[in-house]
Amino acid sequence: MLRRSRPFDEGDRYVLDSFLNQFWPATVDGLSLGAIYSLVALGYTMVYGVLRLINFAHSEVFMIGTFAALLTVELTGITSPLGTVPLIAFVLLLALVAGLVSGGTAVALEFVAYRPLRRRGASRLAALISAIGASLFLQQLFALVVIPWMFDRPKEGGRLPVQSADFVEPVNLFSIGPIDIRSDKLIIFVGAILMMVALDMFVNRTKLGRGIRATAQDPETAVLMGVNIDRIVTATFMLGGAMAGVAAALYLMRFEETEYFVGFLLGIKAFTAAVLGGIGNLRGALAGGMVLGLIEMYGSAAFGSEWRDVIAFSVLVLVLMFRPTGILGESLQQARA
């Protein structure tokens, strides 16, 4: 705020000055952005942990979740913004619907695009191409058929964004010093953390979770020990997809808008977060997402938004140079040699 007292021109921008001014708002935004990255990253990391497959169609699982949430908003007929408490309840409903739809989509995707290949012992590269194909197919299907049909638009309208009814009016809940805590950002952050704790407990404490961990460690031995691999794979896709669905509901609450390629950039970022945190590692996805969100926001604050991705990916490369397995290392619970 000091710099406002003197005349300002283009050359007057000091990186450090700008960065310090923006530090706290950037932190809040970085964490709320990072929370969505983390949730989506879980899907990449779980599937990778179990199948050693990068499910590139996961971004479309997220995209379909945003549309499920949007349709839910439309069907409930809400037209004016909700208060904070009803909003939390409503977001829970959206998360439930979007989680189920996204989870179902992920399972269907596994059945159609991956399982037949797995059965025939195709190479991982074939599955990767199948993933990319499924991703493109779903995007274009939405742009050309689903969106025009669902929202009664001419065919050119399928590529334009779709807005939901206005159901959120963010309010400043409280301020800690210079930090304004806004309701929507807080809901995203808390919601994402709760989901991740729940998932972590599920994988660590339940029988199905044990099966997932066993398969991730050594699929062949797991089969010999009586684990039904197909069931485990289905559960993995369901859980990962559901997390993307929850992320989609939170995303819709934050932006009240979606479009057919909404998952593309976000998917790449989430995949990056998974690698940054250590792919195959659930807690790594959380760490990677938060770190990536913060770096992006700090980088934009210091150097301007056009440098956002440059800085984020430079940090990724640096981290991987010194820790090739990511911040927390590989593995779903147990390190392999």
Binding site: S18, Q22, F264, L266, S300, G304, E306, R308, D309
Partner: peptide, 18 residues
């Protein structure tokens, strides 16, 4: 003061903060 946004992203928080 000038800033830019990434049209592919949906979160313009950094620009808005500035």
């Amino acid at each position: 003061e000038t800033e830019s946004i990434d049209p592919e992203a949906s979160d313009y928080a950094a620009t808005v903060n500035k």
